[in-house]
Design a binder for these strands. Structure first.
Lengths: 146, 146
DNA sequence: TGTAATCTTGCATGGGTATGCGTGCAAAGA
DNA sequence: TCTTTGCACGCATACCCATGCAAGATTACA
């Protein structure tokens, strides 16, 4: 069944892009995009996709959860200078945060360098850096994702 | 009202000691211990106690959540030698885990020393070290708390 | 002490989610 | 082609939790 895989792909995307709070929201979104399904199916998709409700009551992909938690719990400030994103983490945790960022494979990050409390994300260009900064701020809980 | 405060104390305890999954479980436990209340009251208590559902679907005190997450996400192994607990964390994160442990003020920990991937919890005696080890293993999700 | 204000709780209910069961469909095999 | 098997799904329903409302309990105050 290709429908199912495709649908789950769409769910991944939309959950990454927006703050989805209920399975019904997903059903509506899918229906607007040509998929026809019910909440029951979404419940099973969510199980398979390993989505969990994060702090704030919206769904998060398990693979994103680790980074999200690390950033939420440990990052204190995020700045940007050109194509570099500067992240300040709680004392001694920068390396850990950097590892989480590396592991998450965020789009546009070439690499990270970390000291004790600060780490640098080197991005391919300024545009990507802006996206990374936004992503991190989003994970911190500071902003609503655009 | 003293009843309410006492009841919430009991809820704190039981949530710390056992993996509580539903509010109904709390109601039953309380009724077995002489408190009489309904799920609605528990719902409000949980709100006030700042309990949240953690990974695994059981309730966790907010104040424990940070440590629990850090340990769950980052710690790979916990051992003990006498009054020392040896914790192996994912590369570069030992300092961060140590900070979380310090911050959580676990009973019996005199202090922590951390390298890059390993940290040492120095406990006041062997008994305390056993408790700390158990606590950390519990947070890792490895064991059911005794 | 009487009354008003506040707090605490239970009841009833609704929203959000999970799941048993049956159906339809497609692939594999006879 | 007919049968079997397994998967994906919807329907109905039950579970889990939050909350408006009203009543009872408690406290504050005159």
């Amino acid at each position: 069944m290709k429908k199912r895989i495709q649908r789950q792909e769409v769910i991944r995307d939309i959950v990454r892009r927006e703050r989805i709070r209920t399975q019904h929201e997903i059903v509506e979104f899918l229906q607007e995009h040509g998929f026809k399904c019910t909440q029951a199916t979404i419940s099973r998709d969510i199980e398979e996709l390993k989505l969990t409700k994060s702090t704030g009551g919206h769904y998060v992909l398990a693979e994103d959860q680790h980074l999200q938690r690390m950033v939420h719990d440990l990052v204190e400030k995020v700045d940007r200078a050109g194509n570099m994103v500067v992240v300040h983490a709680q004392g001694g945790t920068a390396a850990g945060v950097a590892a989480a960022i590396d592991q998450a494979n965020l789009n546009g990050i070439l690499g990270t360098v970390s000291g004790d409390t600060t780490l640098l994300c080197v991005c391919s260009d300024e545009e990507k850096a802006i996206m990374v900064e936004e992503e991190l701020l989003y994970f911190m809980g500071s902003i609503r994702k655009s």
